[in-house]
Computed example of a mutant assay.
Amino acid sequence: MDMKLEVLVIPVADVDRAKAFYQQLGFRLDADFPGKDGFRVVQVTPPGSEASIIFGTGVSAGEPGSAQGLHLVVADIEAARKELLARGAEVSEIWHDADGVFHHAGTANRVDGPHPDRADYGSYLSFSDPDGNGWTVQEVVTRAPGR
Rank of each mutant, 00 (worst) to 15 (best):
M1W: 12
M1P: 14
M3W: 13
E6C: 05
V7G: 02
V7Y: 14
V9P: 00
I10S: 06
A13D: 09
V15S: 10
K19Y: 01
A20F: 00
A20P: 00
F21C: 04
Y22R: 09
F27C: 03
R28N: 06
L29C: 08
D30T: 02
P34Y: 11
K36A: 15
K36C: 08
D37H: 13
G38S: 14
R40N: 10
V42H: 07
G48R: 07
E50H: 15
S52I: 02
I54S: 15
I54N: 12
T57G: 04
T57I: 09
G58Q: 10
V59P: 12
G65V: 04
Q68C: 03
L70G: 02
H71R: 12
H71S: 05
L72R: 06
A75Q: 09
D76F: 01
I77F: 02
E78R: 11
E78D: 15
R81V: 06
R81T: 05
L84A: 04
A86Q: 13
G88C: 05
G88T: 05
E90W: 01
E90H: 07
S92D: 14
W95R: 07
A98W: 00
V101Y: 08
F102M: 10
F102C: 04
H103W: 06
H103C: 11
A105S: 10
A105V: 11
G106F: 13
A108N: 07
V111N: 09
P114S: 15
P114R: 15
P114Y: 01
P116D: 12
R118H: 12
D120K: 03
G122W: 04
Y124C: 05
D129K: 07
G132N: 06
N133M: 05
G134H: 14
W135H: 12
W135I: 12
V140C: 06
R143W: 10
R143M: 06
R147W: 11
